[in-house]
Amino acid sequence: MTALGYNFGYLDENTKRMIRRALLKAVAVPGHQVPFGAREMPLPYGWGTGGIAVTASVIGAGDRLKVIDQGADDTTNAVSIRHFFAKVTGVGTTERTGEATIIQTRHRIPETRLREGQILVYQVPMPEPLFRLEPRVAETKRMHALADYGLMHVKLYEDIARHGHVAISYNYPVLVGGRYLMSPSPIPAFDNPKMDRMPALQLFGAGREKRIYAVPPYTSVTSLDFEDHPFQPVRADAPCALCGSRESYLDEVVVDDKGGRMFVCSDTDYCATRQTQREAAE
C-alpha cells in the first residue's frame, strides 16, 4: 500500500522519465557518465540520493527490492532506504539476493552470483575516476572523449614505485567495454571481477555530482594493471568466524578492548544462508 499523497516511487513521472532517458543513454554507451537533473530527496547527499533516484525510476509494482550497505541488510542506511521504498511504492522487499529483482547497494556486490533480469543499483559518491589526478573537469571530459587514459596508469605506476604494489583497495578503476574508464564506486577491489560480464544490469547513480552511468549485461569490465603487476583482488586471509567461508569478502570486527578481533562475512545474507544450511546439515 502506497503512502498517501506520494506518487509511485516518490519522484514525479516526468522526473522518472527524464532519468530513464539518461539511463538508456548510459546503457547505450557503457561506462560513459551521463548528466541528469537530480531532484531533492528526503535525505541528504551522501546517503544514497543518486542510487535512490535511479531505483525510483526503474522500480515497478512487481519488483522485489533488496538494499544493502557495506554488504549488510540491517544497517541504518539500508533499513531506511528499504522502508522508504516500501512506503512510497508498496513493493515487496527481501534480504535474499536470489529473490530480489532490484538490489540497491552501497560499497559492495553480493557474493551470490547475480542472474539475468536482475538490476544492481550502485550509490556513487564521486563518479569521475580521474578527479584526483586531473582537477580540471573540462580536461577530464576531453580525456574520456579521446580515451586518453595514460594518466590513470601513471597513478598505478606511482603506487608500485612507492609501495611495491597498486595501493588501491577500494574504487579500483576499471575499463568498460575496452573503451571508457569508470569508477566502480567504492566497492572493494575484491568485488571488481564480479562486474566483468555480469548477467545482471548494473546502474550507477551519483546524486551530488548528478551523473548516471551503466554497465549492460555481459559487458567486459577489466581492472587496470600492468603485465608484470597484474590486478590482484585482496581478501583477509581467514575463514569467516560465523559461516566458515573462505571465498567471501570479510569485515574485521573488534570484539573487545583487549585487541580481540574476528573476521566475518560482509554479505549478511550470504553468511546467514550458509549458517542455516550448515545447521540443517548437522
Binding site: 595514460g150 594518466l151 601513471v154 605506476y157 600492468f226 603485465e227 608484470d228
Partner: peptide, 16 residues
Amino acid sequence: GGNIGERLMAVGARHY
C-alpha cells in the same frame, strides 16, 4: 619516473 613514463603509458606501454 612517472613523468617520463606517462608518454609511454599513453601510447600503450603496460609493462611496469
